[in-house]
Amino acid sequence: MDRHLHRKELIALARKLPSSTNQHLSECAECREEVELLRKFNMAGHSRLQDAPAAWIELAAALAQKQHSLEKIRKAVAALVFDSWAAPQPIGVRGQASIGERRLRFEADRFTFDLRAERLPGEWAFVAQVTCESLPLGNFALSVEKKELTADTAGFFQWTADRPPRRILLRSDDTEIEIPELSWKKNRSR
């Protein structure tokens, strides 16, 4: 307690209660306890706390289920199976493979991920396709750096960016596939 009641407050309280009540409270621990409970919890005609809208409650309540689902997701790292920057040139062809375009193919589990990157003035353009024998192709999402993309019904993604991505994550309902970190230095691949 920071301070005792001011004299004026004490007098005001004393005036409100008849002396017989004061007398009783000073002698009756049970009643003192009850008064204290009533004061502490403001049990006097106050309206109840309102419930939040049902939709808000459902959303909050679903947090644990969503996390549980996330924990069931299988994770895999895709393997690079083709890189046009690393492919040997056909015999007799001079010069280096075009660095303005790159084609990559990754495989993981039952998925195949094809990525075509093209360097345009001031930006890069990307087209990717995911294929899988058993799943509807539109059921995939792609995380590319900070972008989130959804496949069309044929499993295609399209986007542009200032620079090519280093990190790509492919997601279906129950699987998360990490595309190995990409290097975009000239004539090199990982």
Partner: peptide, 19 residues
């Protein structure tokens, strides 16, 4: 990991957070 327990907690305290 019991999501039903979490749901009960949300229901118990939702009016407090809402207030």
């Amino acid at each position: 990991g019991d999501s039903a327990a979490w749901q009960l907690l949300v229901k118990r305290y939702q009016s407090l957070v809402y207030a």
